[in-house]
Design a protein around this nucleic acid. Structure first.
Lengths: 97, 97
DNA sequence: ACCATAGGCAAGTCACCGCTTGCCTATCAA
DNA sequence: TTGATAGGCAAGCGGTGACTTGCCTATGGT
């Protein structure tokens, strides 16, 4: 979906996760948990971060690859490009929500 | 605030309002209501649109100017540029929410 | 002066979202 | 094989946000 992109960006914690993946790509769930706590003071449970990653993944902003018992997450900023172009050109009609 | 920008974009109705202002700048509240109904099938109350415009205004995406008993709304897409650049450069640290 | 129009303010309802808790599966090391 | 690690699933709770309803102010036409 298109609207999932904006929903994914709406939460500040998810934006920090994107920051963290920008600084260091290919982190696992526990790595992200640890770095959120140490570098941003965000003491979130593992499931909270997991759910955030699921939202980012369904928005196309994060791709996940499994290796053994680890699951590494990579950032994909390409969907962001649609945001700016949308309201600079004569707007194309959207899905009626 | 910074986070208000993402909160403003989170709602699909507000995105349609931005589309509508992109197509025709300087509309009043009632004009926006009418065009949402006729062109997008969105039958919203006047207050609903008014509240949406307030959110867009506090996000810096819409500027309002009063003339007599009318209040015209103009689009300002400049805050959108920060979105893309944020996750393409080595991310600057954010406000801890 | 009167009334219709354009807009604002405040409270209340309802649904969604973020987060937790508890339990379950899978992979690797000893 | 046993235990520890990495992750997933599902139900439940609390808060926030979108929308409505009702009433109020202000401007403009006649």
């Amino acid at each position: 979906m298109e609207g999932d992109l904006f929903k994914a960006l709406a939460d500040p914690t998810r934006r920090v996760i994107l920051d963290e993946l920008t600084a260091r790509d290919g982190q696992s769930l526990f790595e992200i948990c640890a770095r959120l706590a140490t570098r941003h003071g965000l003491a979130l449970s593992r499931q909270a971060v997991s759910q955030h990653l699921a939202v980012l993944e369904s928005a196309g902003l994060v791709t996940a690859r499994r290796e053994g018992r680890y699951k590494f997450h990579d950032l994909d900023p390409r969907p962001l490009e649609h945001i700016v172009t949308r309201w600079l050109t004569p707007a194309p009609p959207e899905e009626t929500p």
